[in-house]
Structures are given as structure tokens and as C-alpha cells.
Design a protein around this nucleic acid. Sequence first.
DNA 1: CTGTTAGCGCGTTCAA
DNA 2: TTGAACGCGCTAACAG
Lengths: 332, 332
Amino acid sequence: MATIYEVSKLAGVSLATVSRVLNKNTPVKEETRLKVLAAMEQLGYQPNSVAQSLASNRSNSIGIVVPELNGPFFGTLLSDIENQFRQAGKHVIIAAGHSDEKLEQESISFLQSRNCDALILHVEAVSDDYLVELMQKKVRFVLINRFVAPLYDRCITLNNQHGGYLATRHILEHGHTHIGYISGPMWKHDADQRYKGHVRALTEFGIEPSEQLVYEGDYHESSGAAGAQVLLQSNPSITALVCANDEMAAGAMTAAREAGRTLPDDLSIMGFDNVNFSHYTFPKLTTIDYPVGGMGEMAAQLILKCVYQQSVDTIQTVFEPRLVERDSIKNV
Amino acid sequence: MATIYEVSKLAGVSLATVSRVLNKNTPVKEETRLKVLAAMEQLGYQPNSVAQSLASNRSNSIGIVVPELNGPFFGTLLSDIENQFRQAGKHVIIAAGHSDEKLEQESISFLQSRNCDALILHVEAVSDDYLVELMQKKVRFVLINRFVAPLYDRCITLNNQHGGYLATRHILEHGHTHIGYISGPMWKHDADQRYKGHVRALTEFGIEPSEQLVYEGDYHESSGAAGAQVLLQSNPSITALVCANDEMAAGAMTAAREAGRTLPDDLSIMGFDNVNFSHYTFPKLTTIDYPVGGMGEMAAQLILKCVYQQSVDTIQTVFEPRLVERDSIKNV
DNA sequence: CTGTTAGCGCGTTCAA
DNA sequence: TTGAACGCGCTAACAG
């Protein structure tokens, strides 16, 4: 690999000049600039990004922590983030936090030790205090799908409560009155909010929320199946099931069939997230769209703006969910 | 951030000694080692990985190129690779190649400019020659799901042909004789191999392969739907459809229903890959398991062994597919 | 076993 | 507009 030094020798200029044409931050006479460029070309010169990082104290890398790398949801998120940064010449380092406090913290310090210029965090287990401390230590980061008041200007969130509301309202509008709810783990903020939206819709339609009708799942398919089984058995009058995410809805479909229900005629099912497999189910799942892609892009833009001083389009921090009607819901 | 220099001062030893306890490669007297460790602790010292990279010419980072970051298949792959490296203190930089020759090449040089110690490539569009050249340039990499003869010892592959064979044989064993085939893009090696396996099974059962019965898709759901539609319309006698991946199988299910077929009674459908949503379909998809996870791990192990001289378990380069029986196939 | 001394490749003052 | 010189934080000979 050719170095800046060889280029400077070949071009007959100093080391500093080469650095200048590379970084375009100091005026260089057009003539010498071309000489340098020619020398670079000839040597097939490629800047050593590690040396650049060390000298400039900037690594041009962004660390990302998500709960899982697999799963339709995070794939889309990563994809859009990578895209944005790649175009900007930055690279992305990934780490999985597995929704575990210790692992999330480890992931974060791992990425910090990699001298990332900024982090994008989709973390669930670390405390708000921990994040506030992180900010006080001048670590630069953006939070996705989580709102922490002192960090309000770096939180990219979905209006989860409104999503939960939309989901249940849609069911109610189809005439259902006996509605089961399979929630996510209630300690997770989004699960809590979605449930609150559910309750709000119920109340608005004059229906008393009942604990008998809710099952706390873990966002995985199997708990959706377990929830449906429990709920349908203990409350045979249920005609609709609202699930806090699509995976659980898929599990619920299986379990409902096993319980002898015909879908969607005997039982309506609602999902949440609109992940990319959600129309592979039969009947195709009606769900609430979570604009992951847009939120990932926005997180990237926010960093491009605040950390790299690039001018970007307007920043939006809260996103709205949207109902996606398919075939899993029928009038009662 | 404390530096190695401050640690050395506090511990009353030289810079080099600190470096030694850090890298554990040269014996250090236990007593001084403890002094150094204590000083590190006290200062909250964290090595600067960028400086380490520059000095040692090793970045402890591994670049990965996959066609897409979303999609169930690559999520699992990335997840397992990240896991392995994380445990070894290495980090993973990702780039999407989008099955496009230019983008794949750009991804590779992008990662090279990041001084990755090694690359893991799941590339489809670049030529074999390009990869051989890469090897000659001493770039260290492992190929996943692709076999290039001169690179045989760094190719982690699935026996795709055998998978294609297993899929069709299973259908044949259920008595089907009119079998449609929806392939992947034939220029892709895996698609070609899977198809060859299909033909081999057919021949073995004394059935003449017919072009009328194959549709070339693109591995996406929509082409599965299109393929099913075309095939079922032009060959109403078809009783089974073999699809070269699960996405297309999901699309085929939808289209088959729209064409008036009842699943699985009127039409059996076979998938390939066993991606994590494949049992969300109804009927649950019978498919061929692609051990992505294991292959990702193996790629990581290969690099750990060859690049970082770590001792690892035995290396396996070719993996075998396995039939996963679920509910989408019925006797004719 | 430990300390001294060069770099690694580049960005960035400060003068000229 | 350009060049010389220093330093980023660390590793790796080489002596001792």
C-alpha cells in the first residue's frame, strides 16, 4: 500500500500538501493539486483510514446496538442505517445486546473502545439513568424506540400508544366486543404503551378492560401461541385477538387453528409492526405499520448532522404508526 | 481517556511493560503485572484500538459483505458471525452488496480501506476471476455459499444439489408425477445446483424433465406468486410445486389459493432454506434446512484460525441440507 | 524480565 | 499557498 509520503515524493510536494488535497479543507493551487492527484492515481494510493483516525481523533465509524441481528425488524433497521452511512463514507459496526442489561452495557463499551464517533442504540434493558450518565460522559448517541426525557432531542420514537389504540379501534369498529390481548413484556416501554392504547380504545367504546382477557407474552411466536391457547380456552366467547407484534400474531394463528377456530371467520387477529413476513400468513395479517426504515434513516441523519456537521433535511423525532388492512379481520 | 503513558507513570514502570501486560505475549513479573493492572483500574484505562491497529497493522475487525441486511437468511448469518467474533474481542463491519457486481466490488474495497484483517463474503455478482485476483493480492477472505476451485480451502458451501434432490424426491415419494419447479435466477450458482438436484430426482423416478414445468424466479416472494400463477394456468394437472426458496414458496401459496386451489389437498408445496418464518405459513411449509448459522460460525472459526492463529475445533467446509417435514405436502 | 527508541500513516499547527 | 516538525497512542525490535 502506497502511503502519503510516497505520493508526496512522486508529486514533488510536501507531505502536508498531499494531506490538504485529500481533505479539501485548505486551498491548494490547482496546478499542484492536479500533480498530486496524478501521483495518487499512478500509485493507486488509498488513504489508510486507521492512521487518519488516530491523527484526527475521528474514526468515521458508527456503532449500532440492537437486541438481535436476525429477526425481520432489526434487519430492516440495520439495512437503512447502513445505506445512509455508506453513502456518507462512514462505516457501521454492529453488536447484539440481546435485551440483557449486562450484554447491552458490554456492547456499548465494546463499541466505545472501537472509537466510534457515535452510537445508535436500540436498547431495552439498561436503565434511563445509565443512559443519562452516558450523555454526561459526552458519549454521542441516538436512541431508537425509547424516550428518556433528559435526552429528548436524541430519541427517535414511534407513537406506540397511538398504534395500540389504532389496532384495537379497528377491531372495535368491526363490531367485536370480546377482545383478547396478547401483550409484549410489560417492563418494555413499547409493550406498556401499546397496551395503554388498547385500553384507551376499549374505554372509548364503553368496554370495561378485563385482566382475564390479557396475556403477557414475550414478543416471540411461541408466546403468541401460548397466549392464544390460554385466552381462547378460558374465554371461549372471544372473537378477536389483538397481538402486540406480528410474531405473536403468527403464533396465535397456529394455536387458534389448533383450538378448532377457522380464520378469519371464527376469530379476527390483529398484529403490530408490519414486518416483512406479515403477509405470508394465511389469512394475510392486518397489522399496524412501524416505519422502521424511516426511523433508521432519521437516526443516521441526526448523527450526520450533529456529529459530522453535514446539512440534512429536517429532523423528525417522533413517527406515527399506520393501520395496514389485510385479511385477518372480519365483522363479528 | 487515559493513555498507556499515564498508566506507566502511575505504576512506575515503562511504557513497554504496560503494553506487555496488555498483550500477554511476553512474560512479565507477577508483581509488576499487578501494579500495572491496579493502575489501569484506577485510571479506568481502556486501550485505544485505533492506535493499536496502526502500530500493529492489525485492526481486529472483520468485514462482511452480504446481499441484503434484512431478510431472514442473512440476519441469522450475521447474528452467528457476530457472536463468534464478539467473544474473541473482534468486531464486525457490515456492508450490503445487493447482488450487484459494482456494489459488491465497492463494498469489498470499502472494507479493505477500513483495514479489515479479513473478509467474509457472500457475493453473487462478482466473477470467479475477480475473487482469484483478490486472493493473489493477499486479501484474506472466506467465501460463503460459493465454490471457486482455486479457493477451495476458503469456501464454506452447502451441498445445494443434494438439497434440490431431497426436495423433489420427497415430493415424488408422495406419489406426485406432475411437478412444477420455481427456480432462483439461473445465473446464481445455488439456483443452478438446486435445479440440477431436482432434475436428478425426477430422472431417478423415471420422469422426463420438461421446460414447460419450470419457471425462473428471482428468489423473491412476488416471483413465487408469478411462477405459481403461470405454471398452474398452463399446466392444470400439476399437483405439486417445488420452490427454490421459502420466500417464493410463500408467494406460491398465495397465488395457488387465488387460482382456486385448496392447500395442501389440491396442491403440495415444497420450500428451501427453512428460514425462520417458514412455519408461519399455512399450511406450515415443508422445506429443506439450510444450516446458515453453523456455516456462519464456521466461517468465523476459519478466520480465527488462519488469521488470528487461534486454535479451533475441526474445520468443515461443506454442509449438508436436511429435509424438514411439516404440513404442506400431501399424498396425491 | 524490563526500559529505550523507533516508527505506524496521517492531520495540523506555525512559519515562511 | 506551501513546507517542516510535532504528535495521535500504541507495538515491536533491541539492549540491558
